[in-house]
Design a protein around this nucleic acid. Structure first.
Lengths: 153, 153
DNA sequence: ACTGAAATCTTTGAAAG
DNA sequence: CTTTCAAAGATTTCAGT
């Protein structure tokens, strides 16, 4: 599953993760190539799973999503059953934008995007009623300083 | 800058944040309308800033970005000068994918995507040499359980 | 692998119900 | 506000280098 990427591939990826709506012609010009080779490279990288979904990023604030929480979770349960239930709960809840299992003291971190603090509380109550967690700390974002989906290629 | 959205607008946004590469025809069919009205609604929502960039999401692992850290930062400095320098440092570093200013005890949280632990250390050393921070805790992700850019519309 | 061009499909905007 | 239609433009495929 490892594909060797050259400089041109990398330039194409840089363009696509910046603006995937631009035309092949524009990308080809910017990376110093032409349509067909660029198209073939993109196709290969899609097949290899390097390029995933193409999505529109929406503005959270103008849609009324004013609250963003980072949730630090400690649990005493580490059995397979518990973990499966916890994972399912996270995947099923659309307000959970990110979830990571961590090394060390804290077991999980979530990024939760909701309309307001009340909606967070509803989420939190629903979560702890579904799965037992030992300790939960919520960090409230006051200001999103930076947000990018781009990898530092 | 507040635009009233109806059910159709919401359905269009759901489609676009899931797959922005599909054709207008497909979106129109899925939301129960036809091309031109859908196109006009998308144009208006772009003008209103509700719909932002359209990007390709790349697979971090297949590109060799195996390490993801959440960094909790406490600082004793809260002056405008310090804050401006800190913000600039974060915006300039491509490995910082997210940065939030927090309410409470911890002042900032960062999401940092790097190739490996050594690259994180390099980032960390560069950051603390640029700006003074009081206390830094790094949480290492072992496993990304969920990741979406979609808002829970 | 790249080029150029043909066929197909999409987007865009005008006109009209 | 929606539908239809036509021109402009983009994507995709293919033969030739």
């Amino acid at each position: 599953m490892t594909v060797r990427l050259d400089e041109t591939d990398r330039k194409i990826l840089l363009q696509l993760q910046q603006d995937a709506a631009q035309s092949l012609d524009d990308i080809a010009r910017k990376v110093g190539s032409s349509k067909t080779p660029v198209w073939n490279r993109i196709r290969k990288m899609k097949e290899a799973g390097i390029i995933g979904a193409q999505v529109a990023l929406l503005d959270a604030e103008s849609l009324g999503f004013d609250a963003c929480f980072f949730v630090l979770i400690r649990t005493s349960e580490h059995e397979a059953d518990w973990q499966a239930a916890f994972l399912k709960a996270l995947k099923d809840r659309p307000e959970v934008q990110e979830a990571h299992r961590l090394a060390g003291d804290i077991d999980y971190i979530l990024k939760v995007r909701v309309r307001n603090a009340r909606a967070y509380d509803a989420f939190y109550q629903a979560l702890i009623s579904e799965v037992k967690v030992h300790n939960v700390t919520a960090l409230l974002s006051m200001e999103q300083i930076k947000s990018t989906t781009a990898l530092p290629l």
